[in-house]
Design a protein around this nucleic acid. Structure first.
Lengths: 152, 152
DNA sequence: TGCAATCCGGACCAGGACAGTACGGATTGA
DNA sequence: TCAATCCGTACTGTCCTGGTCCGGATTGCA
């Protein structure tokens, strides 16, 4: 399994929650999403550091999006939370990190793979994940109306 | 960072090592690649279980490829070693696994992302990783001849 | 027929990374 | 002046991963 950090998942959830709501404080977001408050604060701090959201201090402060979600590629979120997108530790022509460097037949060969992944992720915005299937491609229907975007 | 298990890395190395060499025993492969012998055995067992290599028992036994690498998409190797390719634990319309299921605005939305990743990986074969750039697409040159495929 | 080489299957253990928590400080608005 | 809120850092417990080991089954050769 190609694991993505849980925090990235939270980040996407929180970002979609911030959309169109103006400024929201961390505790409110925690209540709305069901994510523990300290964790929400942690994720938002990371996102603020990357410039994806703005933190407003003081009373009546909170967080707000610095860009609409439709202009925010998923790759940026992942890069902000999980670090640079790379499939393996053995990438980007790093030298001297691997003791099998000289006998390894695939040295540096992962680069095209990483490039493919990055490209795939750049084509998807956070808005695509949040939208209730505006123009869904031919795929199995969700069959789960559930309570998408319930305003707790 | 979008982590890929180290074992997958080993798997690719071992597969490229098996290419065109006929039957090879695990200890030989270990010596050739610099990977610890028990680990080599472990990886090969996994690959054999997935049908990517064949294990031949008995004296003069060993492993050999069941398919040429050029016909082996990377996605199969990853799926064999790391399990099904999926970016997050919250996928494939799994129900009841997430306590925030009802308030989560991105439920099931990761599917297109996973599909994109899968597609990107399906287009790359193991041979692409091993080959010394037979017909490289327009991309930045490696600028690192290094010691690719040194026969230790 | 016996022996050695090799794969097979499972269980086991240690290390590291990650998620989650807590605390004190700085900033802002009422 | 005070309360609300974000900011930065450090800490801890848990889970996953990588790596190791053992006994058993199978096969080829002398």
């Amino acid at each position: 399994m190609l694991r993505l950090s849980k925090l990235t998942d939270y980040a996407v959830v929180l970002l979609t929650r911030l959309e169109g709501e103006g400024v929201q404080a961390a505790p409110d977001l925690a209540a709305a999403t069901g994510i523990a408050e300290p964790t929400v604060a942690k994720v938002l701090k990371i996102l603020a550091g990357a410039g994806l959201v703005e933190g407003l201090r003081g009373a009546r402060g909170g967080y707000r999006l610095s860009r609409p979600l439709a202009e925010l590629p998923l790759s940026e979120v992942i890069a902000a939370v999980d670090g640079p997108i790379a499939l393996t530790a053995c990438v980007d022509s790093a030298v001297g990190l691997c003791e099998a460097e000289n006998t390894c037949p695939v040295r540096g060969r992962w680069d095209p793979v990483n490039r493919a992944i990055r490209q795939a992720l750049s084509g998807i915005t956070v808005a695509d994940l949040a939208a209730p299937r505006p123009a869904a491609p031919p795929a199995a229907p969700p069959t789960r109306p559930a309570a998408i975007a319930a305003t707790a």
